[in-house]
Computed example of a mutant assay.
Amino acid sequence: MTTTFKSVPLVAPGHTRPVTHLSFSPLQVDKSYLLISSCKDGNPMLRDWTGDWIGTFIGHKGAVWSSKISTDTSIAASGSADFTAKIWDSYTGHSLHSFPHNHIVRTVALSPTPSRLLTGGQEKKVRIFDLNRPDAPPDYLEDTNGLAHEGTIKSVIWVADNLGVTAGEDGNIKWWDMRSRTVVEKIIYPTPVTSMELSPEIGRLVVTSGHSAAFISAVPNVLPIHVVNLTYSPSSASIHPILQDRFVTGSLTDEWVRVHTMDGGEREILKGHHGPVHCIEFSPDGELYASGSEDGTIRLWQTTPGKTYGLWQGST
């Protein structure tokens, strides 16, 4: 007799307002990893791979739109509506430095080293801060008119020490040479880019725009680009980092998490959230994916329901 397991998520509470962004650390030597969450309550939170709370970074005075953890998990970065980006000691929770901006910071990224911070947001400017000289003025990535994009910058990603990628509401995705600070490649979408995340394990960018999810090499000028057209507008998407046979999405039009095959077929619709799903991300080992919602919760879903993994003990 075959047992069918129902996908039952673990609920990670703690936030008091909508969860806006989720990001996993790379897989560590002991096969563990961390999850950092951003929220409109202004308090980024750090959790271990089971979803258990480790700590909260206290110091922002407005909604936090983006947060990332460094490759070695030693520091974290966050961008906020209080017009600052902050660097945190992920072991103590202390703020190491605050970088002022002139408008809302929507997205942040740490260089692989990590020695530099990339930020973008409502100003349509991309700044580069040197973490070894935090009081020095930032450098800028500029394309035209002194701006990086013609619309709000929704995502910045540091692919390699000398390569960055930015995406904006102007529909542009731009690859930048971080040495010359010039655009080396560009893709233009007819509708605003709503999200862009890097799947570092496979070196692909996952982009949502309009009704599409696109899977693009993180390195410029490498084809093909795989585009999947959906019947709804995804707010965020993430690809399985090992199998590459499925992707998951959230949407602002309903409360569901969807699992799709790579041709767009619908494998599962997962219900559990009580508000639109703002963000979704696969863990680096592909065993689970996390979703963040308007309802203020993070839910952790098993890729293979019923498998004994972490706090899941084969529950049906």
Rank of each mutant, 00 (worst) to 15 (best):
G62W: 07
E142H: 10
T92L: 07
W158K: 08
K271W: 00
E201D: 13
D52F: 12
E123K: 06
F282C: 04
S293T: 04
L141Q: 09
T20R: 10
T92A: 01
R299F: 08
L34I: 02
D135C: 11
L243V: 11
E281W: 01
L243A: 10
L198V: 06
G151H: 04
L230C: 04
P100D: 05
L300S: 06
A81D: 12
S74W: 00
S98P: 05
E255T: 11
D295I: 00
E142F: 01
R267C: 10
L252W: 10
L10P: 03
P13H: 02
G14Q: 05
T16V: 01
G120N: 11
P100K: 04
D82N: 11
G275Q: 06
N43Y: 11
E169H: 11
K186V: 09
G93N: 02
F57V: 01
S155Q: 09
W158N: 04
E142Y: 06
P234V: 12
I202M: 12
K40D: 14
K40R: 15
I298E: 05
P224Y: 10
N132C: 12
D41T: 06
S293I: 03
R116C: 09
H240A: 09
T166V: 04
P114N: 14
L141Y: 08
A214C: 14
A85P: 11
G264H: 00
R127C: 14
Q28D: 00
